[in-house]
Design a protein around this nucleic acid. Structure first.
Lengths: 211, 211
DNA sequence: GTCTATACTTCGATAGAC
DNA sequence: GTCTATCGAAGTATAGAC
């Protein structure tokens, strides 16, 4: 097996992730991706058919990665509440490892999925499907209150995505002394979200003075 | 006062909101904005100096609008928990009225605030500042548990933004029969978020089996 | 204030040698 | 598999008449 064959495609994908995250699909420049990957621009068109094909390959790889890790958590035999904690932590960890993920996902939602083909959408859909399954399992077992599992998925993921993606803009606001938004660590926020999720999903009513 | 003078700039801003929301800053085409606003392209450069100036004017107007409505809520004499409910509902309503808002905000976060000048950032910062003030007030009054007010801001807003912005991509997933993500109404989600916020912020511990 | 015409630039993509 | 050179299409912005 000629092992080193994928060195070039892999470097291109890594460079593309950074470029697409920073500039979006329309703003990304194939020239820049080539420079960042230290390959010739023509090599990109040799390995991938077009800018769009490259983009789709990248997204499918990323979604598959998240889906695989989520599947491990979902199929484990831990209590539902713990699976939620693990899911939040996994997602935050994934973002630390692949810093390009949040920006790309934010952009793709804003783009209305314009660049996604059915194959990529299928890889993407595994994520809400698995999260919803974890939540539903907890509801069925009586551990969680009766929530819409899809709603729960958005409630858990969106803040993590948004908060971690927003670090640069928060830093700018902080540097301009408009407001101090940069004193907490990513891990602080993960813990906050785990606590929030626990309370939001818990079956028992929190306060009695609700009325 | 020559009142009708702003007809053209206003139409341009409205058209720009749609175009920037759909395509992002890099993907937006000044030609298309001109066509959508039914003005000549040169008029855009006459009223606004450049594509970037147009974009900034638009964002500043939008942020100011949200800030003003938020200020009304914050300065009212309602209980803190009710202010949170109103904030979530107001934000969702704002998005219904100005459908371009969520996509633009998602994109701008992903862009790391690349197109924002200090003036626009100042208008933007009013929003987290006011939300944090509402939360802090509730904490001080003993109505809320001791949460980081900035974290709370992200926990409340991000899901609404993300869910409403994600409607088109969810519809595509539903249409391809990959998963049914389109059965709920926006208002269902608002109520889910209000319930979630109430539980997440409530001072009393929900369950006793937390251990 | 409004329009036409166009200068200037950038970018995606390919041809073709090695 | 890798490189150089370049084509052709868009796109931002402006000049200048009305």
């Amino acid at each position: 097996m000629p092992r080193p064959a994928r060195v070039s495609p892999d470097r291109i994908l890594a460079a593309a992730a950074l470029e697409f995250a920073e500039r979006g699909f329309a703003g990304a420049r194939v020239d820049r991706i080539a420079r960042r990957a230290r390959v010739n621009k023509a090599m990109i068109y040799y390995h991938f058919k077009s800018k769009q094909t490259l983009y789709r390959s990248l997204l499918r790889d990323l979604f598959t990665l998240v889906g695989n890790r989520l599947e491990q958590i979902a199929s484990s035999d831990r209590p539902s509440a713990e699976k939620i904690d693990l899911t939040i932590a996994m997602f935050a960890d994934m973002i630390q490892q692949h810093a390009a993920v949040p920006a790309i996902m934010l952009r793709e939602v804003a783009e209305r999925g314009a660049h996604l083909d059915p194959g990529t959408l299928t890889a993407l859909t595994r994520v809400p499907r698995l999260v919803a399954a974890i939540v539903q399992e907890g509801v069925d077992a009586g551990a969680f209150r009766a929530v819409n599992p899809v709603f729960a998925h958005f409630t858990l993921f969106a803040p993590v995505l948004f908060y971690l993606a927003g670090a640069p803009i928060r830093k700018e606001i902080t540097d301009l002394h408009l407001m101090n938004l940069s004193s907490a660590t990513p891990n602080d926020f993960v813990q906050h979200m785990q606590e929030t999720a626990r309370r939001a999903l818990a079956r028992d009513v929190p306060a009695r003075s609700t009325r």
